[in-house]
C-alpha cells in the first residue's frame, strides 16, 4: 500500500511516499505500528496521525485498498 508523506515524514522516509504491506481489513492502528516498525524515528515525534481520503482517521478505521492514505506528522501552519 502506498502511503504519502509530507514535512518531516518525507525526510524520515526519504521520499514523498512509502510502501507498507497491505492486508485485507487493515486498521489505521495496524498501519501506524507497521510505519513505526519500519521507521523507528517516528517514535520521537510529538504526534503521528493518519489521514484517509482527506480526513483524520481514528485508529479503528479499516483501510480499503483504494483509499488515499497519508502520514500526518505534527502540523505547523500559520
Amino acid at each position: 500500500m502506498k502511503v504519502l508523506t509530507f514535512g518531516i515524514a518525507k525526510d524520515i522516509v526519504g521520499g514523498p511516499e512509502m510502501d507498507i504491506p497491505y492486508s485485507e481489513g487493515m486498521s489505521v492502528l495496524a498501519l501506524k505500528k507497521a510505519v513505526l516498525k519500519n521507521y523507528p524515528q517516528f517514535e520521537k515525534l510529538n504526534s503521528l496521525a493518519i489521514a484517509v481520503n482527506n480526513e483524520y482517521a481514528d485508529d479503528d478505521l479499516q483501510i480499503r485498498p483504494t483509499d488515499e492514505v497519508v502520514l500526518i506528522p505534527p502540523v505547523s501552519g500559520g
Partner: peptide
Amino acid sequence: VPIWKKEFFENGAVWVAAH
C-alpha cells in the same frame, strides 16, 4: 490544518513543532 513549516538557520534547518 496539514501544513508544515521548515525554518532555515545559518547552520541548519528544522521542521517546526515536530519534536
